[in-house]
């Protein structure tokens, strides 16, 4: 069982100190299908919780990725520009999207843990 937290929009968050690494879940990549392009935010940009932060283009459609937490974008996964298929291949690893310096740690309480996310997915079926 990992310490990953999840949003209802299928982003995941891993917290290390005041830095949160963010990506999309296995379920999300499966639903999207082949990812062909990822538009990432600029480093240094401040985002509010639930604000549009990135865009994923699958073969079928464009989808928004929302910032799960309020904070400043401190790093983005530049590799996705060259190899967006990593989002499908390894969504919890090399397919990560961005890192945010957390401004409002209390927002973490609103996210689901792995168990809760699994239940959430089961309810979607």
């Amino acid at each position: 069982m990992s310490d990953r937290l999840y949003t209802k929009d299928h982003e995941w968050v891993e917290v290390d100190g005041d830095i949160a690494t963010i990506g999309i879940s296995e379920h999300a990549q499966e639903q999207l299908g082949d990812v062909v392009f990822v538009e990432l935010p600029e480093v240094g940009r401040s985002v509010a919780q639930n604000e549009d932060a990135a865009v994923i283009e699958s073969v079928k459609a464009a989808s928004e990725v929302y910032a799960p937490l309020t904070g400043e974008i401190v790093e983005v996964n530049e590799m996705l520009a060259e190899d967006p298929a990593q989002v499908n291949a390894d969504p919890y690893g090399v397919g990560w999207f961005m890192r945010i310096r957390i401004d409002e740690p209390s927002e973490l309480d609103e996210l689901m843990d792995e168990e809760a996310y699994k239940d959430f997915l089961a309810d979607l079926e």
Binding site: G33, D34, V59, N88
Partner: peptide
């Protein structure tokens, strides 16, 4: 069917 498990790119 919009796609099968192999995915749209592989099918294409």
């Amino acid at each position: 069917p919009v796609q099968y498990p192999s995915g749209i790119l592989a099918e294409h």
